[in-house]
Design a protein around this nucleic acid. Structure first.
Lengths: 227, 227
DNA sequence: TGACTTCTCGTCAAGATGACGATTAGAGTG
DNA sequence: CACTCTAATCGTCATCTTGACGAGAAGTCA
């Protein structure tokens, strides 16, 4: 079987919540095309390598994290014939959600990598190389939608978190404030969304807050409402 | 730039609702590999052809429909190195929803194509070639989920339809009965889900039913519940 | 001690849901 | 034509969920 010349790559939309804002990991491209421009981290799929394996490898390279526990999901595939000036390159986009990292992007081999406010990038459709603006927009929209009906927000949190830290994730991703009391009610009354640890922390100031970890639920019924 | 040898294909999950059941269009493979087995229709992406263009072309070839009005969306991409014995073939799966066709699969060039009950196929994980069982399962799950929060069900209906025909779509896709009165209330009270035409039909028997067409809504708030 | 912050529980009206009764308007039949 | 059958459509009602917001609890900080 002979095939047309074709490149297969994965691009990663790595999101985190820092300082109450949704941020995305971008790299500055060191080589043409789009040299010097910001882009999503990514790379070519190796022969005999599964797509998700490629994505996890890239994720580990960029974040320095052993990427096993990280939430990673496929978003979509982009294959417009002219999307890469080097030739036909089809890219499978993955969305990764990571907690606020203790070490800021250690071990990255990219020319320079940094966290950037996602909304800033989304507001400027010309900032990113290739069709990465579109990919980012699709991935962020996926994340926003999944917060509604899945416990995905916990993927942004460390293993132990408070209800208000979880609320901060929703507020950052959705970009709107939520009522702390109603949020607390919703989260704690949805079966298996979160599980209490019995311990408390005062790291958020104010009255000590209970610590929770992820529950076993996979979907939220009824969903969290984006109002 | 030189690339590893690699094939790029699209596979189509074409769904319809006939006789109150969710059905999928399958072809019987005329050539190896998996000769004689059932498979999803699909084909290789041509040079300089966009992924969705390929999918629409295949859709038109299989159904004989000018595929412009047909709902078509990308589901996921499958790229396990050993998923095709001919070599590395990455496949982008698309989901197409078509109304109950007047002409049954006219103009198909496949060896033989036919509508098969989706639940039957899903119950037998060895029926389909390649990883097509997995692709079908993912696509059907996507369709089931989207019925909850989008007006997608109208894509299974002709331009004009009654509320009970729409309910039939939900019941077929979800595989469970819905209360006709509550469904009627929900559909007609959700703004812009459907718009009345003012005319009626008796094609469903019983009291004449109002005819509706699609509304302008893109999401359902709150979603339709799968109970 | 007192101010301040945040957590957590409560209340209440409005809206949505699920269960189901009842009526309506046609087709089919003797 | 009356009678039956089917399905569409409207209504009722208890229950659940939401959104808005009051109020107390339990820490830290000066």
């Amino acid at each position: 079987m002979d095939f047309e010349p074709l490149g297969l790559a994965t691009d990663l939309v790595i999101l985190t919540v820092r300082d109450g804002r949704l941020q995305v990991l971008l790299i500055r491209r060191g080589i043409p095309p789009y040299q010097g421009r910001w882009a999503l981290p990514g790379g070519f799929v190796r022969p005999d390598e599964d797509l998700e394996t490629t994505a996890r490898r890239e994720l580990a390279e960029e974040t320095g994290l052993s990427a096993e526990r990280i939430h990673l999901e496929q978003v979509a595939t982009y294959g417009a014939p002219d999307r890469d000036p080097r030739g036909r390159v089809v890219s499978v986009a993955y969305l990764a959600l990571v907690p606020d990292l203790p070490a800021p992007v250690a071990g990255s081999d990219a020319a320079s990598a940094s966290w950037v406010d996602a909304t800033d990038v989304l507001d400027d459709s010309g900032r990113l190389a290739f069709d990465h603006h579109r990919i980012l927009a699709d991935a962020v929209e996926r994340a926003r939608a999944k917060l509604e009906y899945s416990p995905l927000a916990t993927a942004f949190c460390p293993a132990e978190f408070t209800i208000s830290e979880l609320r901060g994730v929703y507020e950052a991703v959705w970009g709107l404030p939520l009522d702390p009391r109603n949020f607390h009610r919703k989260v704690t009354k949805t079966p298996n969304f979160v599980a209490p640890l019995g311990t408390t922390t005062t790291r958020d100031g104010g009255r000590p807050a209970q610590l929770f970890h992820r529950g076993t639920a996979t979907t939220l019924h009824p969903p969290m409402t984006r109002t």
